[in-house]
């Protein structure tokens, strides 16, 4: 099966243009929190809920990023990515599996007859605290192994030291390595802390050519939040205004249940519009989320609450 190519961000903004926008990052935290809280009061029931749950499945990057990952573990997960619920054929495949570079080839093999993509984390995920040459090597390796998508981390050291130019330049360099391979840039919002920082990092990453911006590595206690997602959504919309490019958002880290995931969908739907309700532009990085979503789908269809053992391990 041939895989559809994702849209690429080919309209990099020059540094002089982006820096002006970066310094104009103004956010009122209280107003933002209130808006996000009010979006969470949407009541998604019945058909709209089923539709949402199916969307969430199709937007999942099923992920394992552990030192203990083995061929067996990746094979299991990849099989589940292709057929999340063998008992219900109407449920779509997930968007991608997300693994370390050394496991890309195994995942590739297992998903080859599906539309599921393989994403690799690179640039010395999760800290990124290595010289640039190493990040380039890491990324090149993942691409050579067959990765369809590359998830990199921004240089938080440089960012927090105020060296925004370095953050930008590094992403530009990695984008050149990636070429048409889809580039997702992780901001690690838990390290950035303030909404202004999240917006600045979003704009820098987008301007440097990222196809997606992603909230978190999933390795911190502070993972994704709907507030951070909101900030990123607004940055993506502004970037579209300036360049015409529609970039994507991936939320990852701490999204464990369907209810929370639906709230993200509501946020994207109302703040960005249903253009963005596609795996091409919105993803969930998740390990345990998928199981809860599958349970909820079956609950909606059968009316009964479900047990985990009805669903295969991933």
């Amino acid at each position: 099966m041939s895989k559809t190519a994702l849209k690429a961000n080919n309209s990099k903004l020059e540094w002089v243009d982006v820096i002006e926008h970066v310094y104009e990052s103004r956010i009122d935290a209280v107003g933002l929190n209130e808006r996000v809280a009010s979006l969470a009061t949407r009541s998604i029931k019945k058909e709209s809920k089923l539709e949402a749950l199916n969307m969430i499945v199709s937007m999942c990057d099923l992920t394992t990023l552990e030192g203990e990952d083995t061929k067996g573990k990746i094979s299991q997960m990849s099989a589940k990515a292709v057929k999340p619920d063998p008992g219900d054929k109407s449920i779509p495949s997930v968007a991608a599996v997300c693994v370390y570079p050394s496991l890309v080839s195994i995942a590739k093999e297992k998903v080859k007859n599906s539309n599921v993509k393989v994403a690799a984390v690179s640039s010395y995920f999760p800290s990124g605290q290595v010289p640039m040459d190493s990040k380039i090597l890491d990324t090149k390796f993942a691409i050579e192994e067959g990765a369809d998508e590359i998830d990199i981390v921004i240089n938080r050291k440089a960012f927090l030291e105020g060296d925004y130019r370095k953050v930008y330049d590094e992403i530009v360099e990695l984008k050149e390595v990636c070429k048409d391979v889809h580039l997702k840039t992780i901001l690690e919002v838990g390290d950035l802390r303030t909404y202004e920082n999240i917006r600045k990092a979003s704009l820098i990453s987008l301007a440097a050519g990222s196809d997606f911006i992603k909230t978190s590595t999933g390795k911190l206690t502070v993972g994704s939040s709907r507030q951070a997602c909101y900030v990123m959504a607004k940055a993506v919309l502004d970037y579209e205004l300036w360049t015409g490019v529609q970039a994507g958002i991936k939320v990852a880290g701490g999204i464990r249940d369907a209810k929370d995931a639906i709230r993200y969908l509501v946020l994207i739907n109302e703040e960005m519009g249903d253009n963005w309700l596609t795996p091409d532009l919105f993803r969930f990085g998740a390990s345990s989320l998928l199981d809860d979503v599958l349970k909820q789908i079956r609950k909606l269809k059968t009316g009964a609450y479900q047990a985990s053992y009805y669903f295969p391990r991933g």
């Binding site: 949407r42 009541s43 998604i44 029931k45 019945k46 058909e47 709209s48 809920k49 539709e51 949402a52 969307m55 969908l265 739907n269 249903d274 253009n275 309700l277 596609t278």
Partner: peptide, 10 residues
């Protein structure tokens, strides 16, 4: 792309 409509929640 989908056209996601919220069902009534009365």
């Amino acid at each position: 792309m989908v056209n996601w409509k919220y069902s009534e929640s009365i």
